[in-house]
Every structure is written in C-alpha cells, then in structure tokens.
Nucleic acid binder design. Structure first.
Lengths: 242, 242
DNA sequence: CGAATAGTTGAAAACAATCAAACCCCGTGG
DNA sequence: CCACGGGGTTTGATTGTTTTCAACTATTCG
C-alpha cells in the first residue's frame, strides 16, 4: 500500500513548502514505489551507481564514509524529508554510504527520470539544487565544528542541531526527541573517540544540560546548551520536499 | 577588456566539458561583466545576499567561516573554474565568506538571471546541481579527513589534493605548483594550530615527501605522499564550467 | 546460563594546543 | 647605509585535551 503524494503526511508539516496539484502529480509519476527496510539495512553503498533515488518518509538513518584503516566518519544523520542519492543522480556514483538506523519507509524514484525532471520541472530542479546547497552548508558547519571546537562544544552543537531538526518535523515531546543512535555513531559523527564522547556526555548530564537515555535525547536547558554549542544553529525555516 | 566566453582560456583545458555555440552564447548573455580584485579583497561575506555570482578565471582565494570566539575555519580553496556564490543564488544568503588570496579575475553573473537559467537551460541547471553535489562531496572528504586522521595524514591529504587540482588546471611545473596560502590558512583548513602545522610540515620536508617554499608547493615523492594521505584523492576527470 | 551489545569507568600514553621568543626577509625612512 | 618594523616562519618548553587500553557493568536474547 503506497502513500499517495497528494496525501503525503510529511507535506502537511509547516516546514515544507506546499506545491500545486500539477507539481504533485508530476512527483507522483516520478515516484516509482515505496521501500520499507529493517533497522541496519544498507540503502546505498559508496561507489555504487544506484538506479534509485529516495526520499525518507519515516525512520532515521546515517550517511557515512569508511576509511582504508577501518575508521568511520558519520557525515550526517538522515531524517524524514531528506533526499538520499542525489550524488549518484548527478555524479554517477555515491560518495558515501547510507544505512537505516531504525526501520524506515522511503519513497523510491527512478534515476533515469531525473533528466526529465530537469527538462520539464525547473522548479523541482531548483529545489534539488537547493537541497545540495543546503547539504553543502551543513557540511561546512560540521567542518567548522569538528575543526575548531572542543569535545563538549561539538557534542552540544551536534545534539542541539539534531533536536532542532526534530522540532521542525514535529518529533518533539516537551524537551525530548528520539535519538536512535549509539554513542559510537555520535563519536564517529563528531570526530571523537567513544570513550571521550561517553565521558563528555556524562558531564553534560551532570551539569543538567542534556542527556541521552533509552534512545531519547532530552535537552533540559536549551539556552545553556546553545551557549555551550558556540555556533548558532542555523536551520532552514521553510524548505522544499521532493 | 572583457574575455569573450567563446574564447575563454579555461574552457580550452581538457578538464572542462565543451559546449555548443548556442550554450556558450547563453552564458555570454548571462555574464554581466568581469571583476579584477587585489589580493586580500573580500568577495562575498557570510550572511550577505549578493546580487552577483562569480566564476573564478584567474588567481586563488579562500572560502571560510568565522566563529564567535574569533577562530576561523577555511572551508575550501578557490581555484580557477570554481563557481562562487551558489548558496546566495539558491538559498538567499551566503553561509560562508570568500576572499581573494592572490589578485583575481572573475566572471560576474547576475543573480536575477539564475531563474532564467533554470527555466531555459536545463543542462546548465544540471551543471549547477553537479557543482553543488561536488562541493558536498569534497566537504564530506574534508570532514572525514579532519575527523579521523592525524595531523600528518591531514596535511598530506590536503596538499596532495591541492596539487591534483592544480594538475587538472595545467598549473603544474614538474613536481611543483603554486601555493599562495600562509601556513595559518592551511592550519585553519585542517583544524590544526599554526605551530603544529609548521612542525608537521618540517617533518614532511625532512622525510623528503613535500615542501612549501616561496609560495610554491613541491611534492617530491607523490607516491609516499598519497600513502601518508590514507584517503585516495578523488578528483573529477571531466567537469562542467559555468 | 552464556554470548553479544551498549554503556561506563580509571589509568597511562600520545597527540596537539598554547605560550613565548627568536628568526628571516623585505620594504621604509632617517 | 643601516636601524626599524611588520608579516610570516621556526623553535623549545609546558600544558592540557583526547586517545588508547583494559576492565567491568547492565541488559537483552537465544
């Protein structure tokens, strides 16, 4: 049973721009199906030339790169509304891998139709460029965070940001939001060792700023957390959904 | 005296895809002028909504972000052929600053014409998306480098990559290429302190792998340098030029 | 119960940042 | 001609953060 784009639950959220009926019907034709995967399923592999592109509908995942020496860099977390596979779409192959962290549901698009989109739907083409530029922006911030901030600052930054993204998606309950990742994932995202990540999280918990427990991230003192994060968290107020 | 797109010296390089006469004439109309700037001139400021977009023709620059605490992250080096200002074009404001490191010459485009490009030149729109995805790819690699590699590995990675970009642009003379940046710029790019960057460069020089002198980067032992860099350097073989 | 996974903790070692000063090159002006 | 100053580079000593290593706990699952 495939979700109809017209009744897409994501598109109802304030954060996503609304589209004309015509545009939605194009996307509906662009959409070739829906994919349900279990937690832990690899979606795209670095170097692969996937014939399929995705938009995450439900669940969460990770983008990551593996190094020859076995280390791993988590490039970003994948949340509902995120477009996945754009690199394969425009550059011919993925430059990082993507895997589901929780069970996920994704819209599937046909890569071969991407060119049709550029030719006939310039607004959608623009949206895709926007998405790529947004990802570029985020990676620039992450680079700045990892390159210039201390462990505590990085962790506060990463978690405040994640919390903000959840808020935009209506996933917040009071001060809490889901955080289905392991400490190792957070460490790999922020360029820290697992041990040091753990100890720093303890400090943040002791200082009553934030805590992670049972897959739930709670930010008790959001103001203090933002102060520790140093960088202002810059999330788009309204954005396209493809 | 403005360079005519038809005779653009950059486009003659093998690395850049060739275009039909029609496409070039569109770009010629898109191009609103040329900008010559001295070394040190700021081109775009973070947060600014520039009415102008650029393609670097000659010279080199830096993209960087400043932190509230005064630290600086160099996000990337700007070389000839690089498109500058895409974020302002699609997101309304720049997320980093750009400044000329050497004297530069840049093609100037009118931001207001960007939408015309998307509507009437889907191939060019695709190229822009490609450029954004490429930048995303690079930032992912940089993140991996800074997050997971030691100082020596990072420096080798950064300089081998820079050397490779120069090679693609025909800026190589034997084992040497221009490197007009200060050690502080390199340090800010790789998330290292100036002192540690300096000491690590000394070690690489002592080991006869590479050296920087008088604005010239020489890689004496490219194989060894690539080995130290850990990550394979992935540069596009052929790419669009806008 | 045993095995596997994730989280927690302490001690030691390694790495990189900071501090402070010297050095070098080069252009300026007395 | 040489003293002076500025920007960038180099160096040594010290401090401090982060990693690594190793072990132990808690929880889940077959």
């Amino acid at each position: 049973m495939v979700t109809n784009c017209t009744h897409c639950p994501l598109r109802k959220l304030d954060i996503f721009e609304s589209l004309t009926a015509d545009s939605i019907s194009f996307l509906q034709r662009f959409k070739s199906g829906e994919l349900k995967v279990d937690a832990g399923t690899p979606l795209l592999m670095e170097g692969s030339n996937s014939p399929q592109l995705f938009t995450a509908l439900k669940g969460m995942g990770v983008r990551y790169k593996l190094l020859p020496n076995g280390r791993r860099q988590v490039v970003n977390f994948v949340l509902p509304g995120d477009f996945v596979g754009l690199q394969a779409g425009v550059m011919g192959e993925m430059k990082h891998s993507v895997e589901a962290t929780t069970p996920m549901v994704l819209c599937v698009f046909d890569r071969s139709e991407l060119w049709t989109l550029f030719k006939t739907q310039p607004e959608r083409a623009f949206d895709l460029t926007w998405a790529a530029a947004m990802e570029e922006h985020f990676l620039g911030e992450a680079l700045t965070s990892i390159g210039q901030m201390s462990a505590m600052e990085r962790i506060a930054w990463g978690l405040v940001r994640f919390h903000g993204r959840c808020e935009n998606l209506g996933l917040i309950d009071g001060t809490k939001c889901p955080f289905p990742y392991r400490q190792q994932d957070l460490a790999d995202a922020l360029g820290l060792s697992l041990v040091h990540t753990n100890k720093t999280l303890m400090k943040l918990r002791d200082r009553q700023i934030l805590s992670i427990n049972d897959g739930i991230l709670q930010i008790m003192d959001i103001e203090e957390a933002k102060t520790v994060a140093l960088l202002p968290i810059d999330l788009p107020g309204r954005r396209p959904l493809i």
